[in-house]
Design a binder for these strands. Structure first.
Ligand SMILES: [Mn+2]
Ligand SMILES: [Mn+2]
Ligand SMILES: [Zn+2]
Ligand SMILES: [Zn+2]
Lengths: 147, 147
DNA sequence: AAGGCAAATGCAAATGTTTGCATTTATCTC
DNA sequence: GAGATAAATGCAAACATTTGCATTTGCCTT
């Protein structure tokens, strides 16, 4: 989904109301491209002369993530970032602790687990992310003038 | 490690200073047994007539976790719980979304992954936890007077 | 025992995010 | 189009946790 009309249709198809705020938040995600924080989206929306409360941004990013329209990742600095969900299904992420670059991980540990280890838990959700230093940040660290 | 002297020795062995606050926090963890939140530990410590600042509790729980003395888990309601680390090595958890019961998971996804999927990231840390409904909470949900 | 130094602490303010509640809005039915 | 209804919103306060900075403390060396 790369155009606004398509996103809006998906939204209403999930029983969500199509508000002015939602439209401009979706447009922000399309225009900004890649990953954005709630603050970045809020700033962008305000710059477009749409007065929207910060909590509305958070509530909508949460709602859009719940219906699968967005993908949410928490960086090592504890700030959440969002992007339009390109992937088809459930997946996870590999996040750089230095530059915060985010890569997709096809792998999901839940599918590899022996059902017996789940101790009869139901509706099991998998929170899984890997944090490390990406190739670029390793090279930078080895240069003499690195910080 | 189930006694105070042993914990203190481990602490100093890691190059940490042995302060009055640290001693009483370790004693709280021993006495409370099982999992406790920062607030619960703070309350316990105050009840023992030790005036300790809340941020000191957090800083110490963090420090004790870093050196491997404590195990930290974030519940579904976003409150962190801590316990004296019984396990020998790195492991993960299975947490009930209703009663917040915490079980140990032997499984670590990082060991099951093809090194190629890590895209040359180094010092990779694995954040992995499963959230579901435990057996007791499923049964309660089926009773007529469940909430 | 005294002095020096890094680590630990108290305090207040800040962090990003969530929530309760009164009001507004989008959508459905007539 | 008017009215009903649930969802969405603005606002302020709250949440758990972290942080900056001045002060204190524990520990090492003399
Ligand atoms: Mn993704
Ligand atoms: Mn554990
Ligand atoms: Zn990087
Ligand atoms: Zn349970």
């Amino acid at each position: 989904m790369t155009d606004l009309a398509e996103l809006e249709q998906f939204l209403t198809g999930k029983g969500c109301k199509l508000t002015r705020h939602r439209r401009v938040i979706l447009q922000a995600l399309l225009d900004l491209a890649g990953w954005s924080s709630a603050r970045e989206i809020h700033t962008y929306v305000l710059a477009r002369n749409h007065k929207v409360n910060f909590s509305t941004i958070y509530r909508n990013l949460d709602a859009l993530t719940s219906i699968g329209l967005l993908c949410r990742v928490e960086r090592a600095d504890a700030i959440s970032y969002y992007t339009l969900n390109q992937a088809s299904g459930h997946h996870h992420h590999l996040i750089c602790k230095s530059c915060h670059r985010i890569s997709e991980l096809e792998f999901c540990p839940l599918t590899q687990m022996d059902p017996q280890t789940l101790q009869n838990f139901t509706e099991v959700e998998c929170k899984f992310d890997l944090y490390g230093f990406c190739r670029d940040c390793q090279e930078k660290a080895q240069e003499p003038n690195a910080d």
